[in-house]
C-alpha cells in the first residue's frame, strides 16, 4: 500500500511538465501568487535570519506597541515581536498543513484507488468514508484532543483524518475513468499483476487530478488548522501558532487591534494564495482544457 501511495507525490511525467510550465507563465495572477508563496515559504524557513527578535522572549516594557519602525508589525500583550511570531507561526501552520495533507493524501488515494479497482471493496470502503465525512472536522479535533491532549500533533491528526474521505472520493472517481480504458484491459491481457497495474497504470494516470485536488484543499486545511488552534486544541499558548495568536489577541481587539489582526491577515493571505494557485493548477492539468 505504501509503495503505491508514494507515487502520488511523484513528479508529473515529462509529458505535461513543459506545457504546464507554459500555461503557468501565461497565467499572470497565478504566477505572482506562486512567487509570493515561495517568498513566504522562504521567509518562514529563514525566519531566524530575517528578524533579530526572539518570538518567545517577553518584554513587559514593550507591551502592545503598535506597528512601527522597530517592531514592523508591533508587539503583543507580552511584548513579543509580532513579525517574528508571525513568521514562526507561518512555519508551523504550513508545516502542519503539509504533513496532514501528505498523510491524508496517501491514505485517501490508497482507499479511493482500491475502491475503484476492486469492485467488491468499493461499497465497504466508500461507506466507511461517508461515515468519517459525517463527523465535522472540528468535532474530530475535539475528540482527538480529548484523548491525546491538545498539541500540534493532535491538530495534524485531526486534519489528516478529515482530508482522507474527500481525497478518497476524488481518487476513486478519477481511477474509475482509468479502470474502463482499453489500456487497462491490455495490461490485464498481458498478465500483469495487480500491484503493477495499480502503480503503473492507475496511479500514474490519476496523479494529476489528485494533485490538483490536494492543492485546492491546502487552503481549507490551513483554515481548519487555524480554527482548531483558535479553539485551543493546538499548541498551548507560548507557542507561536497563528490560530492561537488570534485567539489570544481577541481580548485586546479594541485596545490593540493589531495583535489579533496581524495573524488574521497572515492566514488570509496564505489561504488566498493557495486557493488561487489551486484554481490555476486545475486549469493547467484539467484534461478537458488540455486539447
Amino acid at each position: 500500500m505504501t509503495q503505491q501511495s508514494v507515487a502520488v507525490a511523484a513528479p508529473r511525467s515529462a509529458r505535461t511538465t513543459p506545457r504546464a510550465l507554459q500555461r503557468l507563465l501565461k497565467d499572470k495572477i497565478a504566477l505572482v501568487m506562486l512567487i509570493l508563496l515561495v517568498l513566504i515559504i522562504l521567509g518562514a524557513i529563514f525566519a531566524p535570519l530575517l528578524t533579530s527578535f526572539d518570538p518567545y522572549r517577553t518584554s513587559l516594557r514593550n507591551r502592545n506597541v503598535p506597528p512601527g519602525a522597530l517592531h514592523l508589525f508591533g508587539t503583543d500583550e507580552q511584548g513579543r515581536d509580532l513579525l517574528a511570531r508571525v513568521l514562526f507561526g507561518i512555519r508551523l501552520t504550513l508545516a502542519s498543513g503539509f504533513i496532514s495533507l501528505f498523510l491524508g493524501g496517501i491514505v485517501g488515494t490508497a482507499i479511493g484507488v482500491c475502491a475503484a479497482y476492486y469492485k467488491r471493496a468499493d461499497n465497504i470502503l466508500m461507506r466507511a468514508m461517508d461515515t468519517v465525512l459525517s463527523f465535522p472536522a472540528i468535532l474530530l479535533g475535539l475528540a482527538i484532543a480529548g484523548i491525546s491532549g491538545p498539541g500540534t500533533w493532535s491538530v495534524i491528526l485531526a486534519l489528516a483524518i478529515s482530508t482522507v474521505p474527500p481525497i478518497a472520493r476524488v481518487a476513486r472517481s478519477s481511477a474509475l475513468s482509468v479502470v474502463n480504458q482499453d489500456y487497462l484491459v491490455a495490461a490485464r491481457a498481458l498478465g500483469l499483476g495487480d500491484p503493477t497495474i495499480l502503480r503503473r497504470y492507475v496511479l500514474r494516470n490519476c496523479a494529476p487530478s489528485i494533485l490538483v485536488y490536494v492543492t485546492l484543499r491546502f487552503g481549507q486545511v490551513i483554515l481548519l488548522g487555524a480554527s482548531l488552534s483558535f479553539l485551543g486544541l493546538g499548541a498551548p499558548p507560548p507557542a507561536a501558532e497563528l490560530g492561537t495568536m488570534v485567539s489570544q489577541g481577541r481580548a485586546l481587539l479594541f485596545t490593540a487591534p493589531h495583535v489579533a489582526l496581524v495573524p488574521c491577515f497572515a492566514i488570509f493571505i496564505i489561504v488566498l494564495i493557495l486557493n488561487v494557485l489551486g484554481d490555476a493548477a486545475r486549469d493547467i492539468f484539467d484534461p478537458k482544457i488540455q486539447q
Binding site: R15, Q181, D182, Y183, A186, A189, L190, G191, R204, N205
Partner: peptide, 18 residues
C-alpha cells in the same frame, strides 16, 4: 497469456498516456 493477445479499436484509449 503471452500466447494470446488483443488489439483494440480505439487507438486513443488503448495506450497508457503516461
Amino acid at each position: 497469456r503471452k500466447k494470446f493477445q488483443i488489439i483494440f479499436q480505439d487507438p486513443y484509449s488503448s495506450l497508457n498516456p503516461r
